[in-house]
Design a protein around this nucleic acid. Structure first.
Lengths: 195, 195, 195, 195
DNA sequence: AATGAATGAGGGTTCATTCAT
DNA sequence: GATGAATGAACCCTCATTCAT
């Protein structure tokens, strides 16, 4: 990649990052192309030179996000932390800007771009799900996780927790409850369980 | 309340319901006053006669929603179902239109109306939280719930589940996993726990 | 039609007229909605309240034009002028604003709206062609027109002359040549013909 | 002209040709510099290096067109076809791409560039009119054309026919009427003329 | 009280043109 | 001389809100 290409790529990243940041702060519709341009330090038209419409930009931002998240998961899953710590990190690790995605963002995509719904769904399926699966399998292999629970159900829980925590408010609310939230996830709410 | 008042009140309800329905289907920003007016069968100006701005209308819709939810919780909590069934219903009972609230709705409120954030927060605190608390207390009293878990943590879980399930996609995904999701909530994911 | 309806209709006409005038003076693309709004003395949005897009407005302007032209032809054809004078009038009568249509206008419609091409074509066919036909038939019946010439060919000539004259420049050029242009149309360019 | 100059000239021609082609297909305004650049296989800036603005380019395209047309007329007039065939060819010969000019093109120039109107007018006067005149004179000399008809009037007709035929739609409509259209031009529409 | 009509402000997008390499 | 990148201005259109009846 020559200097030209590289600079082009950098600018593209800058725009994506600006857009993602703003989208997450304010939602998608509330963010105008003008704002993104300002945040990224380019003119509106430059954005159109890279992404042919707001629609397309939004999609690309999503891909950008998913890929960031994906590589972060990959790292986490392949790390040599003990299983319970990995779980904890998924729920509570404060992510870098680029990887926080607020629920509305996701919802919005699913709703507004319903025709391409599958695209999003598929990308997620392909880039993120496998790491969850791997992690859960690891938990089972190491004897942490009840074999009789379906992987889907556990993943559902993990994703829910993760998604929910992405929201600033919820995260703040959860923080002082870390201990108990973990306990519930691992041991449930029941008293004197399963003897 | 005389006939005038009553009719006035009915019209107001019709507008609120129309707005809520549309907000939940499409998100708040995507719904124009014109659409709400059409759905409610009134003119745009009539809406302004009742609610002085879209901002205000949105707030009132939220109140309307919270109150519906509140009375539904009240009913549930006071019913004579066994504790575990109550929990199950909170997670999985498919709610009537008026009470489904899509996540974006809530997020949006919290974000856009941040100055009044407390208002929403307070209302929720006042109208919904008590029933959750009562329910959890009941669980503890009846020996279902581990006393050592903080009420806040359990409520966090319940709210998360409820909120997450409001989303059509998630609900659909969860449905076939009902059994396991319940199990995880009650017993956690761990194998051969806590002996 | 009540007062409301009437005023609405008047405003619509005003917009159509403003648009037609500007379109003919400057072509369609060069004329912005803002300009039309200004010329018609309304706000841009008002235009959108009546015509749902520039596309649609353009179409409606065309219909408006064709109908004006149509009724003018009707009058001319049904008048009791001698045949040659009717022909002369078609070529040379200076039309009112509403009925001048500059070639570009027509061309533009045919080009840009090619999908609906037929719509325009059909309207013209239905509203204008019949009067031409009637006129030509009259010319044949009265012994003015060579029976062996096809109606289509004569109409082609008439339409060409009329269209061409709509253009200011051409009209101006033709004016001093009236006599000869008529002669050519009636007798051709040949010397001592057809003996 | 050295190799440099030659290559420069070739590129200029390529751009002019690309522009003319596109202008004729889509009208002037609809064609962006970007499109022309693409069609000509050069960058936008290159166009600006040769022609200092779209305005200027348009003008140069027109000159290019007129000169093509001019040399074609020259050839036709100097050919040894009989007079009536020359006339026929003016009306009906299907022209090569570079020489078709769609009416909108001409109209547009006359309208948008009204300040320079004379420039266009003059060029046309100088490059095209003489051949028409020559042709008409030839017709008169050979006894085909009525001496009493002014040259201007005949040229008016010829230009009108030629212009009108440039339009695809009109040409198509005229084709099956060739015979009669010629007849009208030569002999007029009258029955049993001028005895 | 209720409505149809009207609007200012703003959003996404395109285009002729210039900048920097 | 040639290019990819960048831009200001303008355009079509939408929306929350107000006016006039």
């Amino acid at each position: 990649m020559d200097g030209f290409q590289r600079r082009r790529e950098q600018k593209k990243q800058a725009i994506l990052l600006a857009a993602l940041t703003l989208f997450m702060k304010n939602g998608i519709q509330k963010v105008s192309i003008a704002e993104i341009a300002k945040e990224a330090g380019v003119s509106q038209v430059t954005i159109y030179n890279y992404f042919e419409s707001k629609h397309q930009l939004t999609y690309d931002v999503f891909v950008f996000y998913i890929e960031s998240a994906s590589s972060q998961f990959e790292e986490l899953v392949h790390s040599d932390l003990p299983f319970p710590d990995k779980i904890r990190m998924i729920m509570f690790s404060k992510k870098e800007v680029a990887q926080q995605i607020h629920e509305e963002f996701y919802q919005y995509l699913m709703k507004q771009y319903s025709t391409e719904g599958n695209l999003f769904e598929n990308l997620y399926e392909e880039k993120v799900v496998p790491y969850f699966s791997q992690l859960i399998q690891e938990g089972k292999d190491q004897g942490y996780v009840d074999d009789s629970l379906s992987e889907d159900a556990i993943r559902f829980y993990l994703e829910m927790l993760r998604t929910y925590m992405q929201n600033e408010e919820n995260y703040t609310k959860a923080l002082p409850l870390t201990e108990d939230i973990n306990k519930i996830f691992f041991y449930g709410i029941m008293k004197g369980k399963q003897e």
